[in-house]
């Protein structure tokens, strides 16, 4: 099964050195998962201050500054993995360095037919 592991955390708690170390460790985890054939994709995101939202309203799409929801923890990156079951996805989620100071949300992927590979 495919799972999207969404990494949430308070951007303010990371200092530059911590962030750099986190990216390095994340890359290492990504390589490890790739070797096991479990990695489908991963990325870190720019800070939430760079977010733009396109919101439907009044029959049009309105462009606003900022993320979809103002929350204490923001989406900071993701891993898309192929895991045997939820337990394996949980094991991987526990290893994600970016989740150490926040939350990793595990969402099973709904397989839509006809998507390009």
């Amino acid at each position: 099964m495919k799972y999207l592991l969404l990494i949430y955390g308070d951007e303010q708690v990371w200092d530059a050195a911590g962030r750099a170390a986190c990216y390095e460790e994340s890359a290492e985890l990504a390589r490890e998962l790739h070797e096991q054939g479990k990695l489908l994709g991963t990325n870190a995101l720019m800070p939430v201050a760079t977010a733009t939202s396109v919101v439907a309203g009044g029959g049009k799409r309105v462009i606003t500054d900022g993320p979809f929801a103002e929350t204490r923890e923001q989406l900071g990156g993701y891993f898309l993995v192929d895991a045997k079951d939820l337990d394996e996805a949980i094991e991987i989620a526990k290893k994600i360095p970016g989740g150490r100071l926040g939350t990793v949300e595990i969402r099973p992927v709904y397989e839509v037919e006809g998507l390009p590979v």
């Binding site: 099964m1 799972y3 895991a83 045997k84 079951d85 939820l86 337990d87 996805a89 595990i106 099973p108």
Partner: peptide, 14 residues
């Protein structure tokens, strides 16, 4: 069913 919760006894670590 949808989240793939397995039908198994957890391994010794878990």
């Amino acid at each position: 069913r949808d989240a793939g919760i397995p039908y198994q006894v957890p391994g010794p670590e878990e």
